[in-house]
Amino acid sequence: MIEALSIWVAAGLTLAIMSFLYGDNPVYKFAEHLYVGYSAGYWLIYTWHFTIKLMVIQPIAEKQPGAVWLVIPLFFGALMLTRWFPRIAWISRWSIAFTVGIGAGLTLTGAVHGYIIPQVKATILPLWTGNGLTSFNNFVIVVGVITTLIYFFFSKPHTGVLGKTSKVGILFIMVAFGASFGYTVMARISLLIGRLDFLWSSILKLVQFF
């Protein structure tokens, strides 16, 4: 019975959200508000359980090795609460500086070591490999990268050779956008398939139930 009820609720809410396709209506609004409230509650519980309780309170209470160091992030985290008090809100900038510093450091190393260098290395390719198809692929990659970079070179007017090369770059960019858009359509249809399959299987389950 509980399973049938949960199917009814889930299917009903799916239909309520989908009803927006016909037009805005109170049923849709109800489902939307329910979702917002539920999400907020869910995040609150998760933040408490996984961050505050599991990562801070529990290690300190159990005197786990190295737990004493948790006092530092706890202190900076507490400083963020000063934003509620305009007179001392500036103190929260220490925490923000701490976060930004760590974030910038991590992002910089990740971007250089894990993205730029490997991607540049993967672009330095021989234009003739002995195999026609591989050579053509390499040629497309090299030309695509160079012409696209030239398109984003704005220090000189795009005229003459620079203009023609940047137009080839636009062509590559358009192909990339097209591929990306095609995949996006595929993704959205997949989500619709997921929901319609759920609705159909729910109907079948309910028919079996009754």
Binding site: G114, K121, A122, T184, A187, S190
Partner: peptide, 26 residues
């Protein structure tokens, strides 16, 4: 990855940073 992301992840595959790529429902 989701299909939306697939086009953006192919460079990792081409560069050998990942061993394989499964894109979307397809």
């Amino acid at each position: 990855v989701t299909a939306v992301m697939a086009a953006g992840v192919y460079p990792y595959l081409q560069a050998g940073q990942i061993k394989g790529l499964i894109g979307g429902l397809k």
